[in-house]
């Protein structure tokens, strides 16, 4: 009996040790400081640009009937790869996995409706914004909810790892939050009456309401505007600078606007750069 118990204790210790070892490894990430070791050079030499995008977030990212990634964010990533003269490889991710994907070096950049926040910028670096969004409220037409104030005690669906959960609770702390893995699951929860409303990117929700006439979406943003950029690993100024330079070209050439119109069917509602 004693032997067995001490073995169990040993197994537990080994488990804890393994976890802390992993922690030790993670803090030894190398940072690319010179031009030669920049992700920019690696991408050009390797011939492939690895991009994480959220493919459950139409029309930003979705999977077409033949299983290929498509959408606004996917087109942005493709335009970036074309400018570099390399192939694009899109990897599906979720809101919560965007930063881990970057930190573990699985992708070169994240193009997934990635709102620029100073908190996130403590771990990764953001490019200049390329698309702007308000966060609007989606609900069933029959429910008639038009503001968060009406939703005290009701449930509001958001996605894990997005900025919405905290934003909603700041506006109305009496709202019950349900956190889903994907925006698609949150929309399904509203459609099936499992959540009374959801808060998400205005571009995304406008598209969802267009697809399903039983849904309605508010016109005004329930939280301040969100500026979305391309996320890269911190400590690689060469790569970040290239992306910003390319974005300037992408925006001024009108390419960005035409891609937006292609996917959303309307002109961008807010200017890409903020005015103070």
């Amino acid at each position: 009996m004693n032997v067995r118990r001490s073995r169990q204790a040993l197994a537990l210790c080994v488990g804890i040790l393994a976890v802390s070892l992993l922690a030790a490894c993670s803090s030894h990430g190398t940072s690319a400081n010179t031009v030669q070791s920049s992700t920019l050079q690696k991408v050009i030499r390797g011939g492939t640009l690895n991009i994480a995008s959220c493919l459950s977030f139409a029309p930003f990212g979705e999977v077409d009937s033949s299983g290929k990634a498509e959408g606004y964010d996917v087109d942005v990533a493709t335009a970036m790869a074309t400018a570099l003269g390399v192939k694009v490889h899109v990897i599906d991710t979720t809101s919560a996995d965007r930063i881990p994907n970057l930190l573990t070096g699985k992708v070169d950049a994240v193009v997934c409706n990635f709102t620029i926040t100073s908190q996130r910028a403590t771990q990764i670096a953001f490019s200049n914004p390329y698309v702007v969004a308000g966060e609007t409220l989606l609900s069933k037409k029959s429910a008639g909810s038009t503001s968060l104030a009406q939703l005290s005690g009701k449930t509001v669906a958001v996605t894990k790892g997005s900025t919405d959960g905290a934003a909603v609770q700041t506006v109305n702390p009496q709202v019950k939050i349900q956190q889903y893995d994907t925006s698609a699951a949150a929309v399904l929860a509203v459609k099936q009456g499992q959540a009374d409303a959801m808060v998400e990117d205005s571009n995304f929700l406008a598209y969802q309401a267009k697809l399903d006439p039983t849904l309605q979406v508010t016109n005004t943003s329930v939280v301040p505007l969100e500026y979305n950029g391309i996320g890269v690993r911190a400590g690689d100024p060469t790569w970040l600078q290239w992306i910003n330079t390319w974005l300037l070209d992408f925006n001024t050439s009108g390419k960005n606007k035409s891609l937006y119109e292609k996917w959303f069917g309307i002109a961008p509602a807010f200017p890409v750069n903020p005015s103070y």
């Binding site: 922690a23 809101s95 930063i99 996130r120 894990k160 790892g161 959960g165 956190q179 929860a189």
Partner: peptide, 25 residues
């Protein structure tokens, strides 16, 4: 069950992780 928005342990860890970004911890 985190996939159907139950705030159980794994789902909660995912949410906390998206706030403090300490994945391994």
């Amino acid at each position: 069950l985190s996939a159907i928005s139950v705030p159980e342990l794994t789902g909660t860890a995912t949410v906390i992780n998206s706030q403090n970004l300490l994945t391994v911890e």
